[in-house]
Design a protein around this nucleic acid. Structure first.
Lengths: 196, 196
DNA sequence: GCGCAATGTTGCCAATGGCAAGATAGGATT
DNA sequence: AATCCTATCTTGCCATTGGCAACATTGCGC
C-alpha cells in the first residue's frame, strides 16, 4: 500500500520495524515467548542485523521499556491534574499499549538503569506522586495515598491484561477502572459523600 | 536436613527438589531466566530426568502454579472472614512466596487449564468474592467491590515484588498493605470493629 | 569524489529444549 | 525367590537460539 518497499542492502527502517515486531510478538506470546531470529526473519533481514540497533535481546527489551515509559509519561501528563483522570489514564495506557506495559514493570527483563529508561520512568513517578498529594487526607499521608492509588490502577491493569478478571462477560476496562477508583477514593474527594 | 542422601541411580525425591530449585531460580532471575538443564545439574541428575516428572519446561511451571494456588487458597482461608485480613493475607502470600506468585498470574507461562491448577485457582477466587460481598456498599456492587479490593492487593504486591516502590527506604510490605486498605476501604466498614 | 562509520551478511560456536532408545531398580505377581 | 513390569534415570542426538568474528555494502560528511 504505502511505501513498504525495502531496498536491497540497507533496510533503512530496521529499528522501528524490529520494535514493532517485538511489540506484536510480546502481545502474542509474552515478553519472552519469541526469538530474536524470528523477528529478524519477519523483518526480512539476517539474524544479526538487529544487533547494530539494540546490541542484544536485552537491549531490544530495554528499548521497548524506554519507549513505554515515554509514552506512559506523555499519557499521564495529558490526563491533566485531576486525580481520577490520571488513574484512568494509567489503565488506559496499559490497555492501549499492553506489550510496553508488560515489559516496563519487569525490570529483570531489561536494563532499568539505562539512561534511555530512567528519566522517563521518574517523570511518570512524579506525576503519580502529584496525584497522591492532591488527594491526601492529611499531612504525612501523601505517600500512602500515592501508593494506594498506584496499587489500585496497577493491579487492575495487570489483572485485566493477564485475563484474571475475564469471568465470561466482556468488560470495558477503562469504565470499570473509573468505577473502582470512585468507590475507593471518592470519599477523599472534596465535597464527597460516602456511598451507602 | 533430613534424608538428603542421593542413592545412585534413582534420586527418589527429584520432583520436590526440582520444584525447589525452580522456585529459587525464579526468585533469582525471574520466571524464564533459567534453563531446565541448569536446574537438573544443580539437582545432580541428567538433563532429561525432570521430563519424567513434569513433561517439559511448561509442565514444571504448571506445577509451580498449581502448588502456588494451593498455598494461596490455604493462606486466604486461614485469614478468616474479615475482609482486611484477607487482603493482608493476599499481600503476605506474595511476599512469602514470591516465586509462586510471579508465575501464577502469568498464564502464558504455563497451562492454566491443567486440572491441577484450575480448582485451586477457583477456590481462591471464591474467597476473594466473599470478601467483596462482605464489604459491598449496596446490592449490585459486589463485583465492583471485589475487583477494587483485588486490584489493590494485587497491584501493591506486584509493585512491591518488582521493586517499583523501593525509593530508598525499606518498608514492611504487609504493614503498608494494611495501611492502604484502611485508607481506601475503611469508610465502607460497618461500625468500628468486631466482625460479629 | 572519497573515505569512513553505520548498517547488514555469512559462518561459526556453545547452550538449550526435547525426542528416541537403552539402562537400572524397586515392587508386585507368581 | 525368580520374574516381570513399570517408573525413573541415562546417553546420544537434533534443530533452534543468542551472540561473536570477519567480511560486504552503502551513504553521508568532508
Amino acid at each position: 500500500m504505502t511505501k513498504t518497499e525495502q531496498p536491497g542492502y540497507h533496510h533503512g527502517n530496521l529499528r522501528r520495524v524490529m520494535l514493532d515486531a517485538a511489540l506484536q510478538a510480546i502481545e502474542e506470546s509474552g515478553p519472552t515467548g519469541w526469538s530474536l531470529r524470528e523477528l529478524a526473519r519477519r523483518a526480512g533481514v539476517s539474524h544479526t542485523a538487529p544487533a547494530h540497533h539494540f546490541g542484544d535481546k536485552t537491549g531490544l527489551l530495554t528499548a521497548v521499556a524506554a519507549e513505554g515509559f515515554e509514552l506512559f509519561a506523555t499519557a499521564l501528563t495529558a490526563a491533566g491534574d485531576d486525580f481520577f483522570e490520571v488513574g484512568t489514564a494509567y489503565v488506559g495506557f496499559a490497555v492501549t499499549h499492553p506489550a510496553h506495559f508488560r515489559v516496563m514493570f519487569r525490570p529483570e527483563l531489561y536494563r532499568p538503569d539505562d539512561p534511555a529508561v530512567s528519566p522517563a520512568r521518574e517523570r511518570a513517578g512524579q506525576i503519580l506522586a502529584a496525584g497522591g498529594r492532591e488527594l491526601s487526607p492529611g499531612p504525612g499521608r501523601d505517600r500512602t495515598t500515592t501508593v494506594a492509588a498506584w496499587s489500585m490502577a496497577h493491579g487492575f491493569a495487570s489483572l485485566y491484561l493477564d485475563g484474571a478478571l475475564a469471568d465470561g462477560a466482556e468488560i470495558d476496562p477503562v469504565a470499570v477502572a473509573r468505577d473502582i477508583l470512585g468507590l475507593t477514593f471518592g470519599h477523599l474527594r472534596p465535597g464527597a459523600t460516602t456511598p451507602k
